[in-house]
Design a protein around this nucleic acid. Sequence first.
DNA 1: TACTAATTGAAAATGATTTTCAATTTCTTT
DNA 2: AAAGAAATTGAAAATCATTTTCAATTAGTA
Lengths: 158, 158
Amino acid sequence: MGCKKHLGWRGMLKKCGCKMTKPREIILEHLSKNCKHLTVEDIYFALKNKSHDIGLTTVYRTLELMVQNGILNKFDIGDGKSRYELAFETNSKDHHHHLVCCKCGLIINYNDFIDEEIQLLKKVEKELSEKHNFKILNHIIQFQGVCSNCAKKNEETN
Amino acid sequence: MGCKKHLGWRGMLKKCGCKMTKPREIILEHLSKNCKHLTVEDIYFALKNKSHDIGLTTVYRTLELMVQNGILNKFDIGDGKSRYELAFETNSKDHHHHLVCCKCGLIINYNDFIDEEIQLLKKVEKELSEKHNFKILNHIIQFQGVCSNCAKKNEETN
DNA sequence: TACTAATTGAAAATGATTTTCAATTTCTTT
DNA sequence: AAAGAAATTGAAAATCATTTTCAATTAGTA
């Protein structure tokens, strides 16, 4: 299970002078199996529940390392906590963007019209990187709004 | 100066049972004149320099209120501080998206291909709001990368 | 197997943001 | 224009996510 991935991760770590360790392996495995949008706390407690006592600090450090190396994406939905998910190549069928409820924090991955989005993103990316001499590494598209549940709750209140 | 705006702001505040106050007026004026991407600290010290002693807490509260009412956009470039800017209608000529350097935090507003972006965003927005029963209020498009300065610095280091 | 450098984790420190609460201000109503 | 009710302010304290510190441990190499 996950052997190929392990090799990939190990190679990536080697390239930047880092080592593959038990905690890192466990954290990465967890993220691979839970293609969600996890906070540090989410991961820390999930692993604790599986009897993996990995320090909170280690979770922070591992996630940061993986973000630096493009394995994970880090993003923010406005609640003051960072969230992490596996990074998928722009061309991958799993690549997606986010629809976020700003009341309850619900996050929906979408890939409707993803081809059109990607095509346009690439065009804009090319223009911007040339014009501003930027090396563009990533992008975020996020729609923000109110989900049906929260809209309902709000009506009841009024 | 800013009379029309003041009326608009006052009306907005009234609608939500809030009052127009000196601090709020000063903070909004400041944001109107500085179409940047300001942190709470930026604003607090800028006003202090103009001899406006407004409490840090009040700055936080005012900004949050304006975000809730669509006057300001709040966003995050990954450095742990929230940034604020005037919100422009999607159709406004001032509407823009961001190109961010993840090393130094440089933020560039761009509107190249903005018409195409908006057109696509509207299409996606319609689809998502129907499909997921969301009331969509806003969107973020952000490109992340390394600016030329930081790229240069990095070369020198190696 | 031994060594060197990287990693871990617990505790302490940091830094942004929120809460508390008494004093002040706004806006409506007389 | 004055009074009153409700909202707002600001300073200090509290909270909460994240980072730093440092001694003990572990991984990968020689």
